[in-house]
Design a protein around this nucleic acid. Structure first.
Length: 355
DNA sequence: GAAGCGTGGTG
DNA sequence: TCACCAAGCTT
């Protein structure tokens, strides 16, 4: 816990008043005034947005949210979608297990809950891809349950407000307890969004704007001038670099040879070019079919969450009767580079232009 | 508890 | 250029 007791009395009201004036506008959000007038957010949209927002910025999510809700307006529509369509629509957003779990979750809501989302934290936690944060967020925002919402923003705000010096992730339980003590019974959904907005716009990781913060008065870190140093974090190991090769074969009709990656591992369930394993010793190091392969000038550089990758790209033009050992040819009309995860799209662009 | 899992923006 | 960072979950 913090080294000093913070007078928490009335703090949530102060924050809610700030939120009423400064709430950010988001496609999945019901504005405080509308919420006060009785408008309730659609649980499907809240759930979808929260899954997309896991470790992902609001700016990156916006367009994906619009496309998903336009194509699949409700949970029943999403549950009926083809796996490949959902994965293709998610392409570029990252953390693809989220998309696989999203589909499983939608189908579970339809099959096990009559098409209605559970309205409790415990019920929501049974859905694949929904953990402590997302369950609390959906319960409070969609159903006004007084759930304790703890994401990276809340951790940072609590660490500063209370002057918590213990580094993350060890400090997580203490920060959760501090967040719980502040969570009000009144307007819990607005409160949850208010703390996250505060963390996203004022109590930012670097250069926090303490001068305009509604909580600067009681803030311990501010008083001690250490706000930019909290929360402390245990240092992470250096990022390694891995290497690999992909083969891009184009048939005379313009079809590309692609394969759907297995669900386990990197880019699971996504479309990609046949290739080697990435520095995991052996793996398949033979091309997917015999052809006159040429190494493409340049290389693909890409950084994942925990390693850098450098890919050599091989290309070949093949005849109409080519019979690959791996993958399948996808005709130009059925293929869009945008359906590929980013690293695979980079390989495509290296060969066939496009920004 | 630690490791695995994407991407694009930022300083 | 590069490390850090974002409304985390699963194993």
């Amino acid at each position: 816990m913090g080294r000093f007791d913070v007078a928490t009395e009335g703090l949530s009201d102060v924050l809610l008043a700030w939120y009423d004036r400064h709430a950010r506008v988001m496609p999945w959000r019901v504005a405080p005034a509308d919420r006060a007038a009785g408008v309730r957010p659609d649980p499907y949209r809240v759930w979808l947005s929260e899954v997309m927002l896991q470790q992902t910025t609001v700016a990156a999510v916006r367009d994906y949210f619009h496309r998903f809700t336009a194509r699949w307006p409700d949970v029943a529509a999403l549950a009926s979608a083809a796996d490949a369509d959902v994965m293709a629509e998610w392409a570029g957003l990252g953390y693809y297990a989220r998309a696989r779990n999203l589909l499983k979750g939608a189908r579970a809501v339809v099959a096990d809950h009559g098409g209605h989302f559970p309205d409790t934290v415990a019920g929501l936690l049974t859905l694949p891809g929904v953990g402590p944060y997302t369950a609390a967020a959906v319960a409070s925002i969609a159903f006004d349950a007084p759930a304790v919402v703890v994401d990276g923003n809340v951790e940072r705000v609590m660490a500063r407000l209370h002057g918590v010096e213990q580094p993350l992730p060890a400090a997580k339980p203490a920060l959760t307890a501090l967040a719980a003590a502040l969570t009000p019974d009144r307007r819990p959904g607005d409160y949850a969004q208010a703390v996250m907005d505060l963390g996203a716009t004022i109590c930012t990781p670097r250069n926090p704007a303490c001068g305009i913060c509604p909580w600067s008065g009681p803030c311990v870190a501010r008083a001690e001038g250490v706000q930019a140093d909290l929360p402390r974090k245990t240092p992470k190991a250096v990022t390694p670099t891995r290497h690999g090769t992909v083969w891009i074969a184009r048939r005379s009709d313009g079809a590309f040879l692609l394969e759907t990656r297995t669900e386990a591992g990197m880019l699971g369930g996504m479309l990609g070019w046949p290739g080697t394993a990435w520095d995991r010793t052996s793996g398949s190091d033979a091309p997917p079919l015999a052809a006159d392969w040429h190494e493409v000038t340049g290389e693909v550089r890409h950084t994942f969450s925990h390693f850098h990758l450098r890919l050599v790209v091989m290309r070949a033009d093949v005849g109409p009767d080519a019979r690959p050992d791996r993958g399948r040819f996808i005709t130009p009309g059925a293929f869009r580079p945008a359906d590929l995860p980013t690293v695979m799209r980079k390989a495509h662009d290296l060969v066939h232009g496009a920004t």
